[in-house]
Amino acid sequence: MTRDLDAHAAKIGKQDKIATGILTLIVGLVLALLAAIVVYILFQGLGKMLTPGFLTNSPLDDENPGISFELFDSFYMLLWTLLFSVPISLGAAIFLVEYAPENWVTAAAKTAIETLSSLPSIVVGMFGSLFFVVVCNFHVSILSGALALTMFNIPILVRTIQQALEDVPRSQRDASLAMGLTRWETTTKILLPAAMPAIVTGVVISAGRVFGEAAALIFTSGSAPARLNFASTNFGSPTNPWNIFRPAETMAVHIWKLRMEPSQGNDVIAWGCAAMLMICILLFNVLARVLGKALAKKMTAE
């Protein structure tokens, strides 16, 4: 057999170039598509968004309706969702990683969580409207909405936290256990701090998803702009912004609502709202990276 190394090198060199070219093209297309969406939404909505009063006026303002209540409700809903979903997910993930014995019950729980994470959000919304609104009698309210979003958020958070805990090297677990620390001490003092950068990143990214969710909220927290009075001190009043038993409309639901009643004015507000929503979610993602990196650096640096 004769070996023609030069011909072989030329051949594989050419293959390598073609593969690199195709992969670059694919990535370029994906990036271009993303950039096109972002640019188009900003082009349509940024002007409206930056109009004086848009972010601060009430949606019920006759002259110049804004999205101040939707903006507030989006963040307030997110706050309650995280208050519910983070502790539950943390507990579930710690149990699954550190305590659960390897048997069919654990396997079934893991499969259930994975299935739940691919449940359509409109179905979560329907369940929420039946269970939280009717059965639990929480009415169409922030509480019902936040609980529906919690159901939607838990599977994703559990998987993220599970992954973060599993990524802590086995050797650190062993070191702590070998010093006579219980599993609980090992979890709270070693595993959670070590996994914290990944957990924080995961929580903030999931917050971005929750923030933009509309379908799960339409039946649970309502789609009519709440009439909020920030001067109210009566926490039972439906106009008190902090009352979690009042209906609320987030920005994402507001967009859906406006597009259901098309008109020149509504479309412009919807685009402005979309631009604001997108910028918030981009900021969440930036925040997730910055926080995660800062925490990781704090742990390993001098």
Binding site: P169, S176, M179
Partner: peptide, 18 residues
């Protein structure tokens, strides 16, 4: 846990805590 306080262990790979 009481036993492990009295019988310490050093592992193959150095595993300082973060």
């Amino acid at each position: 846990n009481a036993l492990r306080v009295r019988v310490g262990m050093v592992f193959q790979h150095p595993n300082p805590f973060p």
